[in-house]
Nucleic acid binder design. Sequence first.
DNA 1: AGAAATTTGTCCGTATGTATC
DNA 2: AGATACATACGGACAAATTTC
Lengths: 140, 140
Amino acid sequence: MPAPHYGQPRYRVIAAELRRRIESGVIPPGALLPAESVLTVEFRASRGTIRQAIAVLRETALVVTEHGRGTYASPHPLGSRATTGARPETGLREVAADPELAALFAVEVGTALVEQQSIDRTNGVVEAVVRTYRLLRPND
Amino acid sequence: MPAPHYGQPRYRVIAAELRRRIESGVIPPGALLPAESVLTVEFRASRGTIRQAIAVLRETALVVTEHGRGTYASPHPLGSRATTGARPETGLREVAADPELAALFAVEVGTALVEQQSIDRTNGVVEAVVRTYRLLRPND
DNA sequence: AGAAATTTGTCCGTATGTATC
DNA sequence: AGATACATACGGACAAATTTC
């Protein structure tokens, strides 16, 4: 059985399902996701596909994966966090929507948004800084 | 030939080579890149590896890929203006580095950076807005 | 108008290297 | 050392968009 993919690509369907589990609390914040091998069995997908699905979630900072450990659901505390004083290079922040973001999210200017900043390094050199903005309360 | 990847991964080496050709004008702005099948022959790499290399260039918006057509070298304006007036939801912009970005990239505050904005939608609903910042001149 | 060829998109299975626990 | 997990790479297959004949 080759790889028919009517409508949405398989990895996006899987990503959507995983996201649903995280946002619905089936996979609580901070918890470890099932291993790739487990997911391949459950979704009957290849490793690459599973990894691609997880990559989608990682883009929106919904999960964090640590080399040699696994992939965690991001704790989205948003109100707790007491940092060490020095601002962490990567992390969550609450910011006010600028006019452009407000228009995109269909909210009023100044509405609080969650900003997740992550840094892409290669050999220690900063290649890119990625800032992802989301609503505190998704309108799903 | 298995898949050893000492030092730089092959897809990054290939990406660097393609970037050189684009920036040096061997592949002029707006021109079509060779098809993936052609690149597999030239670089003696699998299609997956070629696609991974192109994905790297796509991240920096150095190329644009269209289904069924091919991958184009971005007509890289970045200094030639000519925007449509209405800001496109997704696209490139040149912005000044705020203090935090300046620190990360090790440049002075106000230095020009490239901002790539993309939008993650599901069923038309804006799920997240991603802004990626990079240096104009990557320090390979 | 329609069929074929081209090209990118997605997926599968497998194998090996590297990093962490 | 051993187990686990991610990163890279290969080859093959079908799907979908576009172009060409």
